[in-house]
Design a protein around this nucleic acid. Structure first.
Lengths: 233, 233
DNA sequence: CGAGCCCTTGATGCATTTCAACGAATGTGG
DNA sequence: CCACATTCGTTGAAATGCATCAAGGGCTCG
């Protein structure tokens, strides 16, 4: 237990997750101090599970560094990837007593791990945080609805284009060049297509000059507007 | 304003939605009385909108009778149906300031309409209800995750089979014979396929003897186990 | 009885999966 | 440090699934 709240990375992640303007709230300092006391910081290697589907959902996680993937597998071996998470996202809220998916690290990751009971007790003291928590849940829900919309409406190649724009926004941090932490298989399972179709999508966008593939995982968006048009279909 | 809480149908719907065991909670009578005072009962005809996407989300609705569909349309005319709702479901929670989809009645429907501000004020008085509300949000989220999983994994015909089993469970009320309130087009837009593919799915299941189509909308599940096996793929 | 709407069915072409081979990148042990 | 094994990505060819176009059938309502 105990968290070094003075570390910029941790403060940044928590702020990004609990609301960028939370610092303006009068009780925010108390809130962060209480979190610092009762939460813990964990670092885990790549390709490890933070938790698995149907584990008791006792903890909420906030990635400080690294990349995490939420997935669910069937008995027949197929897999659906629900989401990719990065610094300042949050996972494990919006769960019943048991997680409804597994969380696997894609790279070595540092996470802040917060016991749910502590979260609940914090809510009682800081109603503003409780409200913010609700908002996060709603935000997550609207993201999943968007994802559902994309899955139902768009062709495979359009979904790839959409995915790349999303990644640029989320991990490019202003740059049009970024490094994908997940494999082609992960992307395919996220977008509901075969690995090969995913790969062909990348190639097509490359050949049409919309993106540049520097190495397998290093992507540059060359023509953002055209890519957007393509994604919207 | 004002709600006849003594109507069995309304009491049943609200109970089903706010938790079947809510009656065991000591403050539940107060809660229902307060709701009766401040909520209202509305009846609207078929094919009308309770609200539209990007309307201000001031109200939460609980269907008492009828069937409602949640949908989102693109500028290009295509449409994604997110969900079908029946008696005792709830809609409009888990929304930001504005609805992220439209709610359209499939049949004449009676709904209990509750102002969000009233809901919030009720939370302050009855923490148990607030917690139940959170649980509902989580439940909705897990349902959408399931839907996302199905969209990503299954073939069109499997999705049809899955859909029919879901409908049997939700509107069959113990019987294997039920009446679908939505059109083939609605089903297709829900499952992310063309109308024709949906229709072929129905025909195939009929020809294989797994279901019986008495009229276009009257369905009987003949071989539930086989249908399940088929849906699981 | 006829018009209109919805559903079904058939035929065709395109999108996607599957199977298979190759190439590039990564890691291991000699 | 290199040869080899292994994993991952790309590409091609064939098969399948699905969408689209088009026609016909059944139900409902005037």
């Amino acid at each position: 237990m105990a968290l070094d709240i003075n570390k910029v990375s941790i403060k940044t992640s928590l702020s990004s997750c609990f609301g960028s303007n939370i610092n303006e709230i009068e009780s925010s300092t108390d809130f962060f101090n209480e979190l610092a006391e009762k939460a813990e910081e964990n670092t885990v290697g790549a390709n490890e599970y933070l938790f698995r589907e149907s584990d008791k959902s006792d903890y909420v996680y906030v990635p400080v560094s690294g990349a995490i993937m939420l997935e669910r597998s069937t008995s027949t071996g197929s897999r659906q990837v629900f989401s990719f998470l990065f610094t300042g996202n949050i996972l494990g809220i919006s769960e019943h007593a048991f997680y409804s998916f597994s969380a696997k690290t894609l790279t070595e990751s540092t996470v802040v791990k917060i016991n749910k009971k502590i979260i609940i007790s914090i809510f009682d003291k800081y109603p503003v945080i409780a409200q913010r928590y609700q908002e996060m849940t709603h935000h997550i829900l609207s993201l999943i609805l968007d994802q559902l919309f994309i899955m139902g409406q768009k062709t495979a190649h359009q979904r790839i284009a959409h995915f790349l724009l999303d990644m640029e926004y989320r991990i490019g941090h202003g740059s049009n060049r970024f490094h994908l932490p997940m494999s082609r298989q992960d992307i395919a399972d996220y977008l509901g297509m075969s690995l090969e179709t995913g790969s062909r999508g990348f190639s097509k966008l490359k050949n049409e000059g919309l993106i540049q593939i520097d190495s397998n995982y290093q992507i540059t968006i060359l023509e953002r507007d055209k890519l957007k048009t393509y994604a919207e279909g």
